[in-house]
């Protein structure tokens, strides 16, 4: 457990030192969200209808933007190899790094989501459901994305390749995440969507660190 908290603290500290990067992905989220009314028109009913989906897609892209940094620095300075050689369980420190990624990219995004949702004319209840769905769903994005980041480590065209690998896998999260708000608004309740997202988190927690560890070993050997 000490390895877990040490890595977590280290990554949080590193993220704080390069907080400009974090602000960039947050600004990206805001700007992508703001582009849609210009594209589809600012009719309130339409904005309400597309709002949850747009904010989910923006969150997904913003998560993707920061993913390639997850292992890149440690790979370049050789820390990654040291960590792979260390006796601590690989899965554990991968989880610590993913948690740090989630805390530094998704949590700021969650804080700003209610503001963005208001720009799409969503009401209190819908905003709450949207924020909760993002809170439950974004860990899956970080977990799956970590596998993609590990596989594309140090490759030419890594960023675009990562997007190609990972985005199709994000589709179920997007469906249940954005769908939860629609379900809430239509009166059927969002609990089924939340439970499925929660199940997705558990499944991703169980499988993706293992795949990620294998991918990191391959990419560094």
């Amino acid at each position: 457990m000490t390895a877990f908290s040490a890595i977590l603290r280290r990554d949080m500290l590193l993220a704080w030192r390069s907080r400009a990067d974090l602000l960039i992905s947050l600004a990206f989220f805001v700007i992508v969200g703001c582009l849609f009314p210009f594209g589809v028109g600012a009719e309130p009913n339409q904005l309400r209808a597309i709002g949850p989906g747009v904010l989910w897609v923006a969150a997904l892209l913003s998560c993707l933007l920061s993913l390639h940094r997850l292992f890149a620095q440690d790979y370049q300075d050789g820390t990654l190899e040291q960590m792979l050689l260390s006796p601590d369980p690989t899965v554990l420190w991968i989880l610590a790094k993913v948690l740090a990624h989630w805390l530094t990219t998704a949590v700021p995004l969650l804080l700003i989501t209610p503001l963005m949702a208001m720009m799409f004319d969503l009401e209190g209840g819908a905003i709450r459901v949207l924020t909760i769905s993002l809170a439950v769903g974004t860990p899956i994005l970080s977990l799956i994305g970590a596998v993609g980041a590990a596989l594309t480590l140090g490759l030419r065209g890594g960023g675009a390749l990562l997007a190609l690998l990972v985005l199709p896998l994000f589709v179920p999260v997007l469906i249940f995440g954005a769908g939860s708000v629609d379900a809430y608004l239509s009166g059927t309740g969002a609990s089924a969507h939340m439970l499925l997202l929660g199940g997705g988190v558990l499944g991703a927690l169980a499988l993706s660190p293992i795949a990620c560890a294998a991918a990191l070993r391959i990419s560094t050997e």
Binding site: T152, L155, L165, A215, I218, E221
Partner: peptide, 18 residues
């Protein structure tokens, strides 16, 4: 795309498999 992007054969095989 992933298989095409990796030059090292061993890494290509295993990364593709994962």
């Amino acid at each position: 795309a992933l298989v095409a992007a990796i030059d090292d054969p061993r890494r290509r095989d295993k990364a593709g498999a994962i």
